[in-house]
């Protein structure tokens, strides 16, 4: 995308940031509590029961080390997906913000790019706070761990683009509860977030490996722990997420255009 297209998109981002100015404190607090609660309850609590350090299941890491990066990727997916559901449909139909924006020189590609920039910003803050909390638990190995932030942003954007495409086809919010129940929650559980996929039957393992979150988890875990065993073939993960996001963005553009400019 050229600079010409990015400047108008930045104004759409700016609008969301203006709204965020009023709620950022609560939002940051939430981003802080999520990892704190997960790492304490599941990482330390459950972790002390499931394994002792050196268990082969976690490549020699304690459970909390294995779990933390997985939850980071999964939380970023959830937030990115949420930002792309009700807020986007609201701007399409209930509050009609997009109609108002399209009466200005802004076009559909700017709206889409602006929302993706916003999702990128949200994931940036969430993953940075998450990384900071994990640091309290002594989990990340810097400096490579810093790359978990772009990895999380890539994961979030890949999901966001396709969910915006889905939102552009919705009339009510009902489809979103289906999306969360039957797509997002299973992904949360079965993408290697809580346990290595090698624990599952081969067929399930293969199916899980085709989902985008699996690749996001692998990238984030591999970078946070600076561990090649988790990172695996990283260019493949990146390529998969980029391709998934590109297809999503293509569809989102088409469907938004059909919905908004009839």
């Amino acid at each position: 995308m050229t600079v010409n297209a990015l400047a108008p998109a930045a104004r759409v981002l700016q609008r969301n940031l203006w709204v965020y100015r009023r709620t950022w404190r609560g939002s940051i607090l939430g981003s802080f509590l999520t990892p704190l609660l997960y790492l304490t309850a599941m990482g330390v609590g459950v972790g002390s029961l499931v394994t002792a350090a050196g268990s082969p299941a976690f490549e020699g890491y304690e459970f909390v080390h294995f779990l933390g990066p997985g939850i980071l990727a999964a939380t970023c997916m959830q937030s990115a997906v949420f930002e792309s559901t009700f807020p986007v449909l609201g701007k399409i139909s209930w509050r009609r913000n997009y109609e108002a924006m399209l009466a200005t020189p802004l076009g559909v590609p700017h709206l889409l790019a602006g929302e993706l920039l916003w999702v990128g910003f949200r994931v940036l803050t969430i993953s940075a706070v998450f990384l900071a909390v994990m640091t309290l638990f002594g989990i990340p190995r810097y400096p490579l761990a810093l790359l978990a932030i772009p990895a999380a942003i890539l994961t979030g954007l890949a999901f966001s683009a396709s969910v915006i495409a889905f939102a552009a086809t919705q009339r009510t919010g009902e489809g979103f509860s289906w999306l969360f129940r039957f797509v997002i929650n299973p992904l949360f559980l079965f993408s290697g977030t809580f346990f290595p996929l090698s624990q599952l039957p081969d067929a399930v393992e293969w199916a899980a490996a085709l989902t985008p979150l699996y690749h996001g988890v692998a990238l984030v875990r591999g970078t946070v722990l600076a561990e090649q065993a988790f990172l695996g073939p990283w260019p493949l993960h990146v390529a998969y997420l980029v391709a998934f996001g590109a297809v999503g963005a293509f569809l989102a553009h088409r469907l938004l255009k059909r919905r908004l400019l009839s």
């Binding site: 104004r11 609008r15 203006w18 709204v19 200005t104």
Partner: peptide, 20 residues
């Protein structure tokens, strides 16, 4: 289709931004 999440004046300022 005013922006319900912004104030009265912000609605105008933000719209001005859309027009650069």
């Amino acid at each position: 289709n005013l922006d319900a999440e912004l104030t009265v004046r912000e609605n105008l300022l933000m719209y001005a931004r859309y027009f650069d």
